[in-house]
Design a protein around this nucleic acid. Structure first.
Length: 829
RNA sequence: GGCCCUCUGGCGGAAUGGUAGACGCGCUCGACUCAAAAUCGAGCGGGGCGACCCCCCGUCCCGGUUCGAGUCCGGGGAGGGCCA
């Protein structure tokens, strides 16, 4: 065998062998239990970066391990190819997004293959392919039928200069990125998914996601944001109008000293007193031009004006002034709030600023009483006991809320209500590079769905992309002009496209039968493969993508396509790969390290090993040239020990049983290493400790110079273990070494498809152990004892130790704590 | 401001409540070499003390629970994430 480790002379060869043998194809072990390992598919907007390298390396190590454990493993890959960045890039260099995307995908594929990722390439999908997005359209039609898709009036950013809708990303400080004209909010019709209809189910489902990171579950829970409260109607004095407010703190309503409407609230125009009209209108106009962040963001001053109107608190009959203010938004709740300055901080600040009264109605259950409102330093937002609240005085907040909303309902001026933070998902985009929405507008029949048989509605290859936000498809007559499916008269197609989050909401299912041209995927395959067992991706998708993904799964379940409650059982969120300086990799800092050049320099195995060894998957890591060098040296060291122990390759396994002394010790280490590496996969995913265990075994191999047959057999056993255990992490070098070792016997086999080794429990359990000896919890020595030794035996050994004896001298042993195989602690006084 | 997370040698990181610092990087020393690199081997938390055994201190800080706390509980600090 080659004296030196030369990754470039072996890696491509094994990649080819794996591909020809088809070891990564799913479905080749029909009788075996399945495992579906999925990494978030990439958005190929440029070349592959280290972040991609990390996700796929983690997923691949896991998939390779599971395959060796005998599972039928599905490990697919594809490309999230539609979307804004590709369109923006196209704008810059004038190239068509399709062309650029195709090119990037070619690059990604080549890099992924050079990294040795074991994907089932036969299942590759590209979302820009009409054969993929036709099913987005199909889902759209099904959801339209079921009322899950609907048309609504949505808010959009309208550039007053370009006279068009622009994306959030294009709004900079309330101005258009391109022409710098002010951007205002404009209400335009848009398409939306009724995800809120699934809010409760999405919330309930979170409880079952035991193998999701707690923080992701929490973020989803907060995003769904269920809050239980009450709606209460405040009558407007001298009018038949009612102001409906939503509050989670109806228990504080006796402390309400004013009511605030959102400036956009429809009642504003109707209730404003003539004398206040000019001021109110000016304020409303100004708010329309201020974005939400500036109105409600951190440090934004609370601002408002009095409308001149008054409202009646239905609980007290008291009259309070009606204001409008910047911090109340029309789209949250009812667009109106009852203000209780003593018990809400925003209301408190506002009241102080405008000299509105502050009235305390909740006292803490324990501790000091709150001073009168005027003396209050800040709002007290805790629950407590009600006072000055009529018949409800003396109740605790929680009880009061229940009783008061019941009373409101009984008397007809309110009711208990649930409010959600989650909004419906508006998915219309005024963009070209997306899935066309399959709708035809007919003068006579309105918005008509494209019949299923006419799908896909294909994106026209030629379009003028201006980036102004005006839908580019509107300018393609051969696309727009069509006929009404109902009456056949001339009609126009919808020119908006779908949000790309649609593509990624169900791709995991398309992998199951990616070439099916009659349906999105085969439900029978879903029965076999779903749910995804492990889903690996970045935590930046904790909310949007993963929520849409869970939502879509529920829709597919309603459609009878899938049968599980949730799309994925386990979620692994991986950390960022930072530059060597600890900062985020960016051209700006000049600290970008790309996987491609690293593979050229060190080979794929070193890069993979570095990524996995640096830290557990969920932690951020810093790129380190020194560490990478170190990992390369480790692989070279592994190679050298194989070279140095070639004479052991043919050692007979029968001699293993006679191993003794150092050879037996090596065998124990080998088996313990098998256990530790297996644990690294089976418990928490801590590849770093698994690799560390392998390093220890390699170090131990260097310590034993084999002299006898049993020695050589033990060495061979260890070498086999090293190659096999290393293969999920550094598959090429492992494969090469394994073949060198097994020779002709392995000629038509591949390590990638060999079974994972098992350990012998009797070898793992040491027969003698080191037991720590403590006196009063402080380490005072250690003794060697049989693993099975009991307390008395260990105590005798410990007391025989001179150091220990000196600490026990002249003291009374009050208690002895004994932990078998670990320690003995003398408690003395 | 709310919710959540993190904090361990020079660095990345290990440690079911049971010998803190596995493993790697880095550094120091030794072997090999004419020499260097590479390699192989040894050592490296701080201090008492220049080596020995030994002793003291040590996992952000303060307190608690426990025979025993990096780990559990309470309070504080610093950094980060998400939401407002």
């Amino acid at each position: 065998m080659n004296e030196r480790y030369e990754p470039h002379s072996i890696e491509a060869r094994w990649q080819e062998r794996w591909a020809t043998a088809g070891v990564f194809e799913a479905g080749r072990r029909p009788g075996a239990e399945k495992r579906y390992v999925l990494e978030m598919f990439p958005y190929p907007s440029g070349a592959m970066h280290m972040g991609h390298g990390r996700v796929y390396t983690i997923g691949d190590a896991l998939a390779r391990y599971l395959r060796m454990r005998g599972y039928d493993v599905l490990h697919p890959i594809g490309f999230d190819a539609l979307g804004l960045p590709a369109e923006n890039a196209a704008l810059k260099d004038g190239r068509h997004p399709a062309e650029r995307t195709r090119e990037n995908i070619v690059g990604f594929r080549a890099e992924m293959k050079s990294l040795g990722y074991g994907f089932d390439w036969g299942r590759e999908i590209v979302t820009a392919d009409p054969e993929y997005y036709r099913w987005n359209q199909w889902f759209f039609l099904k959801m339209l039928e079921r009322g899950i898709v609907y048309r609504r009036q949505g808010k959009a950013n309208w550039c007053t200069g370009c006279q068009t809708v622009i994306a959030n990303e294009q709004v900079v400080d309330g101005h258009c990125e391109r022409c710098e004209s002010p951007v205002v909010e404009k209400i335009i019709p848009e398409w939306a998914f009724r995800i809120t209809a699934f809010a409760q189910d999405l919330l309930d489902g979170l409880d079952g996601l035991k193998d999701w990171p707690e923080r992701v579950v929490t973020m989803q829970r907060n995003w769904i944001g269920k809050s239980e409260g009450a709606e209460v109607d405040f009558a407007v004095q001298g009018s038949s109008e009612k102001i409906k407010v939503f509050t989670t703190r109806v228990d504080t309503i006796h402390g309400c000293t004013y009511v605030v409407l959102a400036p956009e609230h429809p009642l504003v125009a109707r209730v404003t007193a003539p004398a206040r009209r000019a001021e109110v209108e000016a304020f409303v106009a100004r708010m329309k031009q201020t974005d939400v962040e500036a109105r409600t963001g951190e440090g934004a001053p609370k601002e408002g004006v009095f409308t001149g109107a008054h409202a009646v608190n239905p609980f007290t009959g008291e009259t309070v002034p009606v204001w409008i203010a910047n911090f109340v938004l029309a789209e949250y709740g009812t667009g109106a709030v009852m203000s209780v300055p003593a018990h809400d901080q925003r209301d408190f600040e506002f009241a102080r600023k405008y000299g509105l009264p502050i009235r305390v109605v909740i006292q803490p259950e324990q501790g000091d009483r709150l001073p009168a409102g005027d003396a209050l330093a800040a709002a007290s937002t805790e629950d407590g006991v009600l006072e000055a609240s009529g018949p409800f005085s003396g109740l605790r907040s929680a009880d009061a809320r229940r009783q008061m909303s019941a009373v409101a309902k009984e008397k007809g001026f309110g009711q208990p209500t649930v409010r959600w933070h989650l909004r419906d998902w508006g998915f219309s985009r005024q963009r070209y590079w997306g899935t066309p929405i399959p709708i035809i507008y007919c003068a006579e029949h309105g918005a008509v769905p494209v019949p299923e048989k006419d799908l896909p509605v294909v994106l026209p290859p030629k379009a003028i992309i201006t980036g102004t936000g005006e839908p580019p498809l509107a300018k393609v007559p051969e696309f727009v002009n069509t006929t009404c499916p109902i009456c056949g008269k001339p009609a126009r197609r919808e020119v908006e496209t779908m949000d790309t989050f649609v593509d990624s909401s169900w791709y995991y299912a398309r992998y199951l039968s990616p070439k099916d041209s009659t349906r999105p995927f085969d439900p029978e395959q879903a029965r076999r493969w779903l749910p995804v067992d492990v889903y690996v991706g970045g935590p930046e998708h904790a909310v949007m993508h993963l929520l849409y993904f869970r939502f879509w799964h529920r829709v597919m379940r309603q459609l009878g396509l899938v049968f599980e409650d949730e799309p994925t059982r386990r979620l692994v969120t991986q950390g960022i790969v930072n530059g060597p300086d600890g900062r985020k990799m960016s051209k700006r800092w000049g600290n970008v390290v790309a996987p491609g050049p690293m593979v050229k320099k060190y080979g794929a195995d070193t890069l993979r090993l570095f990524i996995l060894f640096a830290a557990p998957p969920e932690k951020d890591i810093d790129w380190s040239d020194e560490q990478v060098d170190g990992l390369f040296r480790f692989l070279a060291r592994v190679w050298r020990i194989f070279v140095a122990r070639q004479e052991c390759f043919g050692a007979p396994a029968a001699a293993l049983a006679q191993a003794s002394g150092d050879a037996l010790e090596l065998r124990r280490r080998t088996h313990r290493t098998i256990q530790r590496v297996t644990d690294a996969f089976e418990k928490e995913l801590k590849f770093n400790t698994g690799i560390a265990a392998l390093m220890e075994l390699v170090n131990a191999l260097y310590q034993l110079e084999p002299k006898t047959d049993p020695d050589r057999a033990a060495v061979r056993e260890a070498l086999v273990a090293v190659a096999t255990l290393l293969s999920p992490f550094a598959p090429h070098v492992a494969e090469e070494l394994w073949h060198e070792m097994v020779g002709a016997a392995g000629a038509d086999r591949l390590l990638a498809a060999e079974p994972w080794p098992t350990f012998d429990p009797t070898l793992v359990a040491a027969d003698t152990v080191t037991i720590a000896v403590q006196v009063n919890g402080k380490l005072r020595g250690e003794v060697q004892a049989a693993a099975a030794a009991g307390q008395d035996e260990v105590r005798a050994l410990a007391e025989a130790d001179e150091k220990v004896r000196s600490h026990l001298q002249g003291k009374t042993v009050r208690k002895v704590v004994f932990v078998p195989k670990r320690l003995i602690n003398f408690v003395v006084g």
